[in-house]
Nucleic acid binder design. Structure first.
Lengths: 195, 195
DNA sequence: CGGTTCCTTGAGGATGATCAACGAGGGTGG
DNA sequence: CCACCCTCGTTGATCATCCTCAAGGAACCG
């Protein structure tokens, strides 16, 4: 995927490249947002964990994407934590230098304005779907958001991950997927989900 | 409240002032987003209504605030409908002219970048709360978002409106408020809610 | 005073959460 | 190659909660 900002440019403004092993935490909910993060390789999960165990996944970010900018833009703390979802390589730039990039590159600033707009648009669509209650509907909305192409494709998430994203429980996800299989909405072959 | 963009400036770029009676629709979910809207006086509700009756309120906007920009920024359709929540006066500017304002006023563009960031930050916080399930928690999160000051104040929303915002049913809101009254979280005097 | 809108209460039912096991596959080290 | 462990998937039974439906009451406004 085309990166938000050209890697050379980021490096020329002083960005550092860092590697994180799968499962490593990049920052915690409540931390001050001091850096711009852009993924060179791998993927990252943003999530909240509530008082005990239950986790809510806000979103996944992959190669070329940036994340965690909103609180950095407005000097707030992170509303969620970030964890490497795979082994991941990330460019990290201090926010003062990031603002310098925007000051000196109006096109990039415009790009981020549109990016933020797109994120809001997605969130609005998502919350509409989540409120809808019905597990089947929520799961299908998640599956839609996974899909890139038009053909049936393998869904690369565990049932637990789907549960965390949709706010349901694993057992409910499993039982609902069963129903969706019977309705021919998904295929399940060898425990693998195709949609 | 301080307006997003100075009214004189908007008018000088060709904005039109329009009045809407309470309950009037400004645009529907699915409409193309062709205009920038800024409230001069009154307030506006953004909402989704699903196949039959049930409504989900995405948010309220009041004097000085703009709304519906995200889809305009990215040439998408509105993910929700907008209705005048009170009698309302609005400045409306075609998106081509709006882009012209941003092109010619870097400070305003920066302002909108931060505004979009703030909206995302709020949405992230809200969805974290909504997923939490517990009606009491959801309602309290809504009440928190209403409050401006530190003292107990009258909540100017009907129980139905709270229900639509939190994704609960009226009866559940009523019964939960009852419990919250017993726990001294809210006061209810003469059917009016104080928090 | 009549109508509308909003609030309230009760009973009953559906549904997703919870709890408790167990199964299946994959990887690792002996 | 086998035994073990760990993660992920699966199933059934039970429970709590919120929704649904139905009815009526209270407040407000012309």
């Amino acid at each position: 995927m085309k990166p938000q900002i050209d890697l050379e440019l980021l490096l020329s403004y002083g960005a550092n490249c860092k590697k994180y092993a799968k499962g490593e935490i990049l920052f915690y909910e409540g931390d001050e947002a001091l850096y711009y993060y852009q993924i060179v390789e791998g993927s990252v999960k943003m999530y909240n964990s509530n008082d005990e165990g239950k986790e809510y996944t806000q979103g996944y970010f992959s190669e070329g994407q940036s994340f965690g900018e909103p609180p950095m833009f407005i000097d707030e703390c992170y509303p969620a934590s970030a964890m490497a979802f795979q082994d991941t390589e990330i460019l990290k730039l201090h926010k003062d230098r990031f603002w310098k990039i925007l000051d000196e590159n109006p096109k990039i600033e415009r790009h981020f304005l549109k990016l933020m707009a797109r994120r809001i648009h997605n969130k609005a669509t998502t919350s509409k779907d989540i409120i809808n209650q019905k597990p089947e509907f929520r799961i299908q909305a998640f599956l839609d958001s996974c899909k890139k192409s038009r053909e049936k494709e393998l869904i690369e998430f565990t049932r637990q991950e789907i549960a965390n994203f949709t706010g349901l429980r694993v057992e409910t996800v499993i039982r609902t997927l069963l129903k969706m299989k019977q309705k021919k909405i998904v295929d399940i072959v060898n425990h693998k989900i195709f949609y």
